[in-house]
Design a protein around this nucleic acid. Structure first.
Lengths: 236, 236
DNA sequence: GAGTGGTCTAGACCACTGT
DNA sequence: CAGTGGTCTAGACCACTCG
């Protein structure tokens, strides 16, 4: 049984995605020109263009007229724009800072082990308390597979935006994520950290982040104090 | 001062969007073929195709190979898929039913009047209590401008999915929306309606829905009881 | 079989970037 | 200036739908 032939431009797209995932071009570097890629892959320039345009639409590439086609860098601004949806009452993006964090190696909870496919191995858990406008506002629990993040340790210094760190330190590119949102009551220890009353409402986000190949690389739980910030979603 | 010439395919896209908004083709009807449109508008078929593809990507059109290019109908399935993001614990889409509703004409709160641009006029407010799996789970307050919905009255029978009603009864197509999410404590009357404890956490969504021209046509506040359903968001 | 959108190619010209 | 992506055109062929 032969699979149905997929369109050429999708094959080109997958081949290029795989080459990026393999590190053939690193973050910030340019791919060869459309004509060069077309010659390499034995297709027309128009077909390469269609593949590149589709990848750019999914934020897997950045095209700059007159310069080239680039593998995006997970800069802090880019991470915030794509993967952080909190805005203040005026609709302006919110930039959180980290007040404190802790990194531990723990036995993976069942759902974490299942999602990250870590089997019986231990996982890293990063806990962070983050502030918005100087005020404690976000609690995060982040789970990572030590096999994919060998450089991580209890004393690793972490930047504000983790996805840039994943990329530069472990070669892991977060390409997309899914958030599952609900409202929960603040537990006593959460309330103490955030300086609010126990039982006060918090917005909880359960996130699975995936790399270019679609493999889950991060599981994150966040609790947001939403009296002065909102989670913004565009629907169309 | 002449504005910079925009690309032809964007001009084509805007012209077609305006013609759809004007009702030249109604929901469910097909546009002329690519070649016919190209001849009409004096551009090549490839340029029309680029405009149509972009509109299809934004859910403004539906293309079906061998059949034609259609103006989408706001069926219940489509509305749910595009504008309702609740899923149950298993990740399956949730289909709410309406338990009861009330339609009143009220003085518009300031933010409603500003968003819908109704000035000093009164507005319609639709209140609904909705159930998921037979269990009260969602409270909605929906604000509409009577000038855009002249057929609406206190005794109007409403279907489950309002956006289909907007389209068929008032010729208003909801093309996109923005949700702003936060967590709040249930007020006593809300708790009573939902059968939960006062102060229990609810997920609140503040929505502005816009038509094809980008004009705000609906303002909606929803409160979700999220112990058995979640608001799902894809990020990329 | 006629008509539709989907794919693929080829080539021309424009707009922007860096040297 | 050379090289890049962006736009526009033209034409061929394929896959699907319907009568």
């Amino acid at each position: 049984m032969e699979a149905v032939a997929r369109p050429l431009y999708l094959q080109v797209r997958e081949a290029l995605t795989a080459r990026i995932a393999d590190g053939e071009w690193k973050a910030g570097e340019a791919l060869p020109s459309e004509f060069a890629l077309a010659a390499q892959m034995g297709v027309s320039q128009g077909t390469v263009r269609k593949a590149l345009d589709a990848m750019a639409a999914d934020n897997l590439l950045e095209r700059r007229q007159g310069r080239g086609t680039f593998v995006p860098e997970q800069t802090e601004a880019r991470s915030l724009f794509h993967f952080f949806r909190m805005q203040d009452a005026a609709g302006a993006p919110v930039v959180p800072t980290t007040l404190r964090h802790a990194i531990e190696r723990i036995q993976a909870p069942a759902d974490v082990a299942r999602t990250l496919d870590t089997g019986r191995r231990q996982v890293w858990r990063i806990q962070r308390l983050r502030a918005v406008g100087g005020r404690p506002a976000i609690i995060e629990h982040i789970y990572l597979d030590p096999q994919r993040f060998p450089g991580l340790g209890p004393d690793t210094a972490l930047p504000n935006a983790l996805y840039g760190y994943y990329q530069s330190a472990a070669g892991v590119t977060v390409a997309r994520a899914e958030d599952s949102l609900s409202a929960v009551a603040a537990a006593p220890d959460q309330a103490a950290q955030l300086g609010i009353a126990p039982g006060a409402p918090l917005l909880r986000a359960h996130r699975v982040a995936r790399d270019l190949r679609g493999t889950a690389v991060e599981l994150r739980q966040s609790w947001f104090e939403t009296s002065f910030q909102h989670y913004q979603v565009a629907l169309n």
